[in-house]
Design a protein around this nucleic acid. Structure first.
Lengths: 239, 239
DNA sequence: CAGTGGTCTAGACCACGCC
DNA sequence: GCGTGGTCTAGACCACTGA
């Protein structure tokens, strides 16, 4: 263990080592990490330094800690964090849980801009998945999801796709989404999308263009969602 | 200094004391706080405990620290944080700086729901301010702002309102906005608003209903903004 | 140079979960 | 009781700032 080569603070070097272990799958979601003292001994630093690195990772929601039990790798499949990235609410802020049905999937080549987004080569194959999300049995969100086939082999042959794709990414492909970037705008619906949302063509809808980022910083999914603005809002708190 | 009465961790008690001093205006924006050792001595705790409380406040952006210089109360008037709550961008993410002109101001009684929002009594007087924000000389955002007159006496008589109302709240009224809650939806513009935004009536626009929260947790402003969706998006990152 | 915050260590004690 | 993480302390040294 050579921790002394960089000019980074020790705790940052420890942090980098630990994050790399998560990225490499050395520790998997829900797994228990060694105790602070065990890590400190292994890495040749003091327990307080390990603690500082661990706490930073907790702040970034990569880990969870429970007093008396231990330190765990976050599963983004838990109720508490499963809907962390799902920002649609009833006006006033009431949480809402969506159901999902897949309308279609197909494979296609990535366009130039898409290649740039995913930062991959020109042979990039994508899966394009179209989904309809319903809330309280009302059609609410029409969603076009793009995934690089290289990251998610045969994802289009998956039957029983879960309600949350992020769960699938993590459990089946070992890819954890830790950040999303949304761009919201308003559009007039085309007839096709309006039909799916049981709205009139010409209605206004929220359009959300989302890039999902994994633990190693890569964009691993891009989606465009059209949300019926009659009954739902996109709700976000900025601190 | 009695810090031992609660069953809170020491650093949390220190945190509460320090936050209270900010709320009460004992320390004002841009002011330098005493050093860690000075605070530790005054409060009868160790320097490490003070540091933990200070660092939490830095994480919440209430304070800023500079090695070798000291600890400062955040001014939300700085370039870096001034536009922290301004989320409109060009598609693709390029930052954008708005200009603002006030269209009208008037005083009126609060409605029942508004009284609830501001958590004040029934005699609550509001100032209703209508503003147009332009970006690169193009009308972009039409905004209706509601402020309790009790919090901001004679704010409607202010001339030369600044581009950022938050700056005014802080500098003139000692009220710091530390959090905003946005609810986004899509609407079809009425003729009146469309005219102001130089759009056709019937165009789609982003509607943003925002509550602004001050350091003591109260809602101190409510606004409704209509943003031309042709050239701008609302951009947000969730981690 | 003195004073500030930033890092790192070592050790004590507490609170919690589990056997 | 034992092992875990959580808090608190005390002290050392470093890095940056400004007189």
């Amino acid at each position: 263990m050579t921790l002394t080569t960089n000019f980074q603070p020790l705790y940052k070097q420890v942090y980098d080592v630990l994050v790399k272990r998560l990225v490499d799958g050395y520790w998997k979601p829900a797994e228990t990490l060694p105790s602070e003292f065990a890590l400190a001994k292994e890495l040749g630093v003091s327990q307080g330094t390990v603690r500082k690195a661990l706490n930073q990772m907790v702040a970034e929601k990569l880990l969870r800690r429970r007093q008396g039990k231990g330190t765990y790798v976050s599963e983004h499949t838990q109720e508490s964090s499963l809907y962390r990235f799902f920002r649609y609410r009833e006006p006033g802020g009431e949480k809402v849980i969506p159901e999902t049905t897949v309308i279609s999937t197909r494979r296609r080549k990535a366009t130039k801009p898409e290649q740039l987004t995913f930062n991959l080569d020109s042979k990039l194959q994508l899966v394009e998945m179209i989904r309809l999300r319903t809330i309280n049995d009302l059609p609410a969100i029409y969603e076009i999801v793009l995934q690089p086939l290289a990251l998610f082999p045969d994802i289009d042959k998956e039957r029983d796709l879960p309600n949350s794709l992020y769960t699938l990414y993590q459990e089946k492909y070992g890819v954890s989404v830790v950040e999303v970037r949304d761009e919201l705008s308003a559009v007039i619906l085309t007839e096709e999308v309006a039909d799916q949302l049981a709205l009139k063509a010409g209605s206004a809808a929220l359009k959300n263009t989302r890039a999902s980022i994994s633990i190693d910083g890569r964009v691993i999914e891009v989606s465009t969602a059209y949300c019926s603005s009659d009954n739902f809002v996109y709700s976000v708190t900025i601190k």
